[in-house]
Amino acid sequence: MKRPNAEPPYLYLPIILSILLAPPAFSECYYPNGTIETNPAYQQCPDFNGTRMCCATNRSNPFGGADTNGWTANKCLPNGLCLDGFTTINTHGEKVQVQQYWRDTCTSQNWDDGGCLKACAGSVC
């Protein structure tokens, strides 16, 4: 039995590809004063126990990369902090790994709404 007016499956390919290749949805990230961060490097971290923090996870220089290649990608930590790691040359000419903890931005424009980490107000922890 023949199906009436059945569309060939290849006609659905553009629709399927547009869904699969669509950029991921992300939340906007805000500083404690309510200013929005417009740099696309800043992305929402996974929700760890109700935190709604953002870190610069979308940088081309990977976590642990050389500081001569620019800022490195952060890692989101379960406590809401961002971890930045990079490789540099110290004053003795030795290659060393450096890690710094940060509190960056939050998905809530009003940091008093909850879920925004208020520790490390001076940025570096």
Rank of each mutant, 00 (worst) to 15 (best):
P40F: 07
P40I: 11
P40A: 08
A41F: 00
Y42N: 01
Q43R: 15
Q44L: 05
Q44G: 06
Q44M: 13
C45K: 01
P46K: 03
D47H: 05
D47F: 03
F48V: 12
F48Y: 07
F48S: 15
N49S: 14
N49F: 13
G50Y: 10
T51N: 15
R52V: 07
R52N: 12
M53P: 02
C54E: 11
C54K: 02
C55M: 11
A56R: 12
S60R: 10
N61A: 11
N61D: 10
N61C: 10
P62W: 02
P62R: 03
P62H: 04
P62N: 12
G64Y: 00
G64T: 00
G64E: 00
G64M: 00
G65F: 01
G65T: 04
G65P: 00
A66K: 05
A66L: 13
T68P: 06
N69P: 01
N69E: 14
N69I: 07
N69K: 14
N69A: 15
G70N: 04
W71F: 14
A73M: 04
N74F: 03
K75F: 09
K75W: 09
K75V: 05
C76Q: 11
C76P: 05
L77E: 09
L77K: 01
P78R: 02
N79E: 08
N79T: 11
L81E: 15
C82G: 08
C82Q: 10
L83S: 05
D84L: 08
G85I: 02
G85L: 03
G85C: 12
F86Q: 06
T87H: 02
T87Y: 04
T87R: 05
T88H: 13
T88R: 15
I89G: 02
N90L: 04
T91A: 14
T91G: 09
T91Y: 08
K95G: 01
K95H: 04
V96G: 03
V96Q: 06
Q99R: 14
Q100C: 04
Q100M: 09
R103S: 14
D104F: 11
D104C: 10
D104V: 03
D104W: 12
T105A: 15
T105W: 12
T105L: 11
T105D: 10
C106Y: 09
C106V: 10
T107M: 15
S108H: 14
S108L: 10
Q109N: 10
Q109M: 03
N110G: 09
N110E: 08
W111T: 00
W111V: 02
D112V: 02
D112N: 15
G114M: 13
G114P: 06
G114K: 11
G114N: 07
G115D: 00
G115L: 00
C116P: 06
C116V: 02
C116R: 01
C116I: 05
L117Q: 10
L117E: 05
K118V: 09
K118P: 03
